[in-house]
Amino acid sequence: MSAKRRPRVGDGPVFRPALLAFVMLGAALLIVGPLLIIFVEAFKAGLGIYLSNLAAPDTVHAIGLTVLTALVAVPVNVAFGIAAAWAIAKFEFPGKGLLTALVELPFSISPIVAGVAYLFVYGAQGWFGPTLDALGIKVMFAYPAIVLASLFVTAPFVAREILPVMQQQGSDEEEAALSLGASGWRTLWSVTLPNVRWALLYGAVLTNARVMGEFGAVSVVSGSIRGVTNTLPLQIELLYQDYNAPGAFAAATVLAGIALLTIVAKLVVERMDPDRAG
């Protein structure tokens, strides 16, 4: 990025401003517009109405359920991401490419397909449904299914963030720690994880955003029972269908806020971590 350089292709006096104008206009209409209208619609009737919409009992319950889901799903997928990245980055084994593809598989699968798939495992007509039912364990259309569907959808996020960093760093520092007598866990905790901390943090933030915002998979497995199994995105749909747009947009501001914080976290991580700065 030198300040003075020879003009390159696309630097022409007409092309450059025209392309920039096109890109700016596109970004304003496609990205800024949707973000802006959420807040405009939510606050249209005033702050008081906004707050009372947010404080509606079903919405408060949905926020609680969403947070409770993230509290379980994020740590589990962080642990899984670390285990998967450790196995894939630090060792050579046959089928490594296949395992990497399997870890990333949920990215490619429609959330609706994921939700239906879970139904056929834990639902009444599914593989384990009748057994679970006989034991009195309720998975489908209840909290466990919401967590399971969220786990599926966000399984690859942490691994995908930390794997390239681990691969790039190699294993020299870990081998040094081990030869100095550190235990495996100690090495993981004091050498590996600090080395990947920014990628790990961003992976966790991304997982959290996706768990809290997951709609398709959760709408299949939760049963969308008002005030019981409605997560925040489902609550938005419900309010919207009830022609309560201000309520829906008020709830949407919470998720949009989390999305914006996620992007800020990415910027912070990129600034803190010279390896990742693009």
Partner: peptide
């Protein structure tokens, strides 16, 4: 980052 349901209503 933005949940799909939020994008949908927006």
């Amino acid at each position: 980052a933005l949940p799909t349901a939020v994008a949908g209503v927006a």
